[in-house]
Amino acid sequence: MIQVQNLRKQFGPKVAVNGVSFTVEKGEVLGFLGPNGAGKSTSMRMITGFIPPTEGSIKVGTYDMLENPIPAKQLIGYLPENAPSYPDMTVSGFLGFAAEMRGLSGDAKKKAVNRVLEMCFLENVQHQSVETLSKGYRHRTCFAQSIIHDPEVLILDEPTDGLDPNQKHEVRGLIKKMGESKAIIFSTHILEEVEAVCSRAIIIDRGTIVANGTPRDLKMRSEQAGAITVKFVDGEASAARGKVGSVQGVDRVSVISERPLTLRAFPKKNAGSDDVARAIADMAFKEHLPLQGLHVEEGRLDEVFRSITLPDNKAKEETK
């Protein structure tokens, strides 16, 4: 549904986005990650046709955003950063305006407004003017605007920013559900959101894509991924460390905490994590070292994020 090729944006001498290419198909939820100022919002503004790219092409559905912007924009629902809306309008007035702009009128318009009022839990504030609403409601009002015409493509710039945990949960659920039938791009700073919602994630840093894969793939890049964490009921650190270290397939062992005694064993490159985990369990059984827990680490997205987006030496310092 969305094809972005070699997107580049320069503001004066500053290159904000440099050669970004990706595609999003229907049924995919693409998470857009990156530190502040990495070029996420600029990319989204180009995809939605708000600002023209310096170079590159954007295709939405079958339409080229640069040559044929009107039908391309009709396919897109967009929630800009900070969720702007007209403060002097009522919620339903604002949504009615959005519906009319999308070509809906009469009954179809009324239906569309009622549908999104219900979906975004705005029914009880529909007659209130936007300026009297709290941030969470304003945010959802703008979100409601983006889905008013049931678009095939949804582009959401930090859709859960400023919401309370319950609202975040609801919006995530909504995105995930809509992601089954739409092509969705959304940006976020919250990494667990990516794991919860996205089918694929892109990490963008200083204007270029530095990682692109499923959340699982990305997590596998973590240093911790595949390590085995062993928690003993009791015992002495150095002795347990030596025993775990001598298990076949274990490369090195580090102590996570002394009490309760927790160790992390990193398997050798060619050893399978699951096999090593079983070997450790066998060893512990034989040596009469009661275990409290044992599990294979999936890897952590925040660690991957940091190691990719921080300058090399700084990332190493942090992991030390």
């Binding site: 924009k73 967009y78 007209y86 403060p87 959005a98 703008c142 605007q145």
Partner: peptide, 14 residues
Amino acid sequence: RLGTIELLLTMPVT
């Protein structure tokens, strides 16, 4: 100032 220009100009209008 409000940022609504981004909303307005990403709707299907010239």
